[in-house]
């Protein structure tokens, strides 16, 4: 009996985080950045149009979730932690991008940072449901592991990005991260749709 209530509590505490489609525009932005950086055409009309399109897509997704799934406001404590984590990983991502562009390290620090951000997100969301953590939020942990593995492949001499036509690891990694975020977002959306369309809870009010 308690499992159902634990699931309700978990979803209520992570309502925004579990709305997977919100990750799709972010993934598209990262993917387009990688592709545009790789082509280096100097023409900014493409990135500007992409940015406007992605912002419009995010607005539509926000509207969809608010109308179909409703709004849940996180507690001030949850909001504060999310803000601190977001700012910290944004700074780390910029530093990693600079490091990767300078080609100082053999691994992709951008990928390692994103994997770390996803792993922290997974840990934060599932702290209260340790035993069932993976079943409730699998896409974050799987994405973190996949991105981490691909990030360290150059250590083993695997320059995978060349096979896909990318000039450098940083562009290839951006495109790969974007694709992973899009897939994880869609996966998360399908899962939350399934979890929130369960049959009506039985009320035994009359018996009581």
């Amino acid at each position: 009996m308690k499992d159902r209530y634990a699931q309700i509590q978990f979803i209520a505490a992570n309502y925004l985080r579990l709305q997977g489609l919100r990750m799709v525009p972010i993934g598209l932005l990262v993917l387009f950045t990688g592709i545009w950086n790789n082509s280096r055409q100097g023409d900014l009309s493409g990135p500007i149009l992409s940015f406007v399109g992605i912002a419009a897509l995010y607005w539509l997704i926000d509207l969809y979730y608010n109308q179909v799934f409703g709004r849940v406001t996180p507690t001030p404590a949850q909001h504060k932690v999310e803000l601190i984590v977001s700012i910290t990983f944004s700074i780390l991502a910029i530093l990693s991008f600079v490091l990767d562009s300078a080609k100082i390290l053999p691994i992709s620090m951008l990928g390692v940072t994103l994997a770390g951000a996803l792993a922290v997100d997974f840990w934060q969301a599932t702290r209260s449901v340790r035993g069932e953590a993976f079943a409730l939020f699998p896409e974050m942990l799987v994405s973190a592991i996949v991105i981490f593995i691909v990030s360290i492949l150059p250590i083993f001499g695997i320059t995978w990005w060349e096979a896909f036509g990318f000039k450098a690891q940083v562009e290839g990694m951006l495109a790969f991260d974007g694709i992973v975020l899009i897939v994880a977002g869609m996966w998360g959306h399908l899962r939350i749709r399934r979890n929130l369309s369960a049959g009506e809870a039985k009320s035994n009010d009359i018996a009581l």
């Binding site: 978990f10 409703g70 709004r71 996180p74 929130l196």
Partner: peptide, 28 residues
């Protein structure tokens, strides 16, 4: 009562929720 326990459990995990979200969360 199961329905009310589900509502209170959901609300105890957040600041507030609207009617649509509560309907989704509890399945009522």
């Amino acid at each position: 009562e199961p329905a009310r326990l589900a509502i209170l459990t959901a609300l105890s995990a957040c600041e507030s929720a609207d009617f649509t979200a509560l309907r989704r969360l509890t399945g009522l």
